[in-house]
Amino acid sequence: MISLIAALAVDRVIGMENAMPWNLPADLAWFKRNTLNKPVIMGRHTWESIGRPLPGRKNIILSSQPGTDDRVTWVKSVDEAIAACGDVPEIMVIGGGRVYEQFLPKAQKLYLTHIDAEVEGDTHFPDYEPDDWESVFSEFHDADAQNSHSYCFEILERR
């Protein structure tokens, strides 16, 4: 099963200049909980913004210009990325925008964090048809001392 995991502000903004323009430790914990011990696929820009392999996960970098870091697996196509994951129950696609666009048609599940923030962004989550998805989990949280904005975790499964 292919799943996408993303944090989205208003207007589906997911990033600005290779960074997330908010401070939500709870979302980072949600991300870790849902990706640990699963292969993660990301684009080169996302890889560069993280700066290191995510521990406890097979890191697969999709790029037309593969790098030389041998701590991760470099691939040039969506099919190659899927094959590099091996026989696993769930593959997690973690961004960025172009990689989400490439995998959305193949995805069966979306793990979304909806952030109540209007922020400037240069990267967006692809538009998706809500009628194609069923919400199977939703959990709202107010902003607090650690988390700069209110947010809602949601899991959607393709109908």
Rank of each mutant, 00 (worst) to 15 (best):
H124S: 13
D132F: 11
G67T: 14
V72C: 11
D70H: 12
G86V: 13
G86H: 09
S3V: 00
V72I: 12
V72G: 13
S49Q: 02
E134R: 11
A84E: 04
P39A: 09
M92T: 15
P89I: 05
E80M: 06
W30I: 05
P21T: 02
I82L: 05
E48A: 13
E139L: 08
R57G: 00
I60C: 12
G67F: 05
G56F: 06
D116V: 15
R33M: 11
I91Q: 08
I60Y: 15
E157V: 05
W74R: 05
A6N: 14
E154H: 14
E17G: 09
R98I: 01
E139H: 08
S148L: 00
A107S: 08
N23Q: 07
M92H: 14
P66V: 10
A9W: 01
E17A: 04
A145E: 08
K109P: 01
E48R: 14
T68R: 06
Q102I: 15
V136S: 09
P105Y: 10
A143S: 07
P25A: 02
P66D: 02
L62W: 02
T68E: 11
A7G: 00
A9C: 08
Q102W: 15
E90D: 09
E157N: 07
K58H: 06
D127C: 14
P25R: 05
W74H: 11
F103H: 07
S77K: 14
D70I: 07
E80H: 14
R52F: 05
V13P: 00
P126D: 15
D79R: 05
T68M: 02
G56T: 07
E120F: 14
Y111K: 02
L28P: 00
V10K: 00
V13C: 03
S64W: 06
H124R: 12
A81M: 12
D142M: 10
A26F: 06
Y111H: 07
N34W: 05
D70S: 08
A26Y: 09
D142C: 07
S64T: 05
N34E: 07
V72T: 11
Q108A: 07
A145Q: 06
I155A: 05
G43V: 01
F140H: 07
L4A: 02
P55A: 07
K38L: 12
F103E: 00
D87M: 11
S135H: 08
V119C: 14
I115Q: 04
